[in-house]
Lab assay of single mutants.
Amino acid sequence: TTITITINGEELRIRGDHEEIHKILKAWEEDHNDEEIVRLIRELAER
């Protein structure tokens, strides 16, 4: 699965399995701050 998210003008492409993507979207849905979401995404992007 690949998704693209733009946060603060920075486009981040994430490839991951369903569970990893779900974790990010769940954090977003629960209204975590952008920095935390960006950190989760970067961790995935670095793999």
Rank of each mutant, 00 (worst) to 15 (best):
R13Y: 06
E36F: 06
I21P: 00
R39T: 08
D34T: 08
R42K: 15
N8K: 07
H32F: 09
K26Y: 05
E29P: 02
E11R: 09
T2G: 05
L40Y: 06
H18K: 11
E20N: 03
T2N: 06
E11F: 07
N8G: 12
L25Q: 05
L44H: 03
D31L: 11
I5V: 11
R42M: 13
V38A: 04
H22C: 07
L44S: 02
L40N: 02
E46N: 05
I24F: 05
G9W: 04
D31S: 08
I14C: 02
E20F: 09
R39A: 09
L25H: 03
R15K: 11
I21F: 05
R42V: 09
R13V: 15
D17H: 12
E29F: 10
R42G: 05
L25I: 10
H18T: 12
E29D: 09
A27F: 08
E19Y: 11
L40R: 08
T6H: 11
I5W: 02
T1Y: 15
H18N: 10
T4I: 14
T1S: 12
V38I: 14
D31T: 06
E30N: 12
E19K: 08
R15W: 13
L40V: 10
R42P: 00
N33D: 10
H22S: 12
K23M: 13
D34S: 09
R42N: 09
E43K: 03
D17G: 07
I37M: 12
E29I: 12
I5F: 09
I37N: 04
A45R: 02
E10H: 07
E43M: 05
H32A: 12
I7H: 03
R39I: 06
E43A: 03
K26N: 10
E36K: 06
I24Y: 03
D17W: 08
I14A: 02
A45K: 02
T1L: 14
D31A: 09
D17S: 15
I24C: 02
L12N: 02
E46R: 04
E19L: 13
L12E: 01
L25R: 04
I14M: 04
E11N: 07
E43T: 04
E36N: 11
T6R: 11
I41R: 00
R39W: 05
I7W: 05
R39F: 05
D17N: 11
I24S: 01
I37P: 00
I37L: 15
I41Q: 00
E36R: 08
N33A: 10
N8D: 12
V38Q: 12
E19N: 10
E20V: 06
E11C: 05
I3L: 11
R42C: 13
R47C: 15
E36W: 07
E20C: 04
V38Y: 07
T6I: 14
H32N: 13
E11P: 10
G16S: 09
L25N: 01
T1K: 10
A45I: 13
L40Q: 10
T2Y: 13
E19M: 09
T1P: 08
T6F: 14
E30C: 04
R15C: 05
E10L: 09
N33H: 13
E10A: 07
E10Q: 11
T4H: 08
I5S: 00
E30H: 10
I7F: 09
D31Q: 10
E10G: 04
E30A: 14
V38F: 04
I3T: 05
R42I: 14
L44E: 03
V38T: 06
R15D: 08
I5D: 00
T6A: 06
D34Y: 14
G9M: 03
T1N: 10
H32G: 09
E29L: 10
T6W: 14
R13C: 04
E35F: 07
R15V: 14
R15N: 11
I37E: 00
H18F: 14
R47D: 15
D34M: 11
E29Y: 13
K23N: 12
E46I: 06
E11Y: 07
I41D: 00
L44Y: 08
K23Q: 12
E19T: 11
R15I: 15
W28H: 03
K23V: 07
E19D: 12
E19H: 11
V38S: 07
G9R: 02
E11Q: 12
G16L: 12
L12G: 00
L25W: 08
I5G: 00
I14T: 01
I21N: 01
E20M: 06
I37Q: 01
I41L: 14
R47N: 15
I21T: 03
R13K: 13
I14H: 01
L44N: 02
I14K: 00
I14D: 00
H32M: 15
N33F: 15
G9H: 03
K23E: 10
I24Q: 02
I7S: 01
I41V: 05
T6L: 11
L12A: 01
R42T: 08
L44M: 13
R42D: 04
E11S: 09
E36V: 07
T1E: 14
R47P: 15
E10V: 09
I24K: 01
E19I: 08
I21Y: 03
D17Y: 10
I14V: 07
I37D: 00
I3V: 12
A45P: 01
H32E: 15
R15M: 12
I3D: 01
I37Y: 06
W28N: 01
H32Y: 12
I41T: 01
H32K: 15
R42E: 11
I5T: 01
T4A: 08
R13I: 15
H32W: 11
H32L: 10
N33R: 08
H22K: 14
L44A: 04
I14Y: 02
I5Q: 00
I24E: 00
T1M: 13
A27N: 04
H32P: 15
E19R: 06
L25D: 00
R47I: 15
T1I: 14
I24T: 03
T4Q: 06
I3A: 06
A45G: 03
E43V: 05
I5K: 00
N33L: 15
G16H: 03
G16C: 06
L40G: 01
T1D: 10
D17P: 08
E35Q: 13
H18D: 12
A45D: 08
L12Q: 02
N33V: 14
E35A: 11
E29A: 05
A27D: 05
K26E: 08
L25E: 02
D17I: 05
E46W: 03
H18L: 13
I5M: 05
G16N: 04
T2Q: 11
H18S: 14
D34W: 10
W28F: 06
T4Y: 12
I37S: 02
R13G: 04
E46D: 15
E43H: 04
E35T: 10
N8P: 01
E10W: 05
K26C: 05
A27S: 08
K23P: 04
E43I: 07
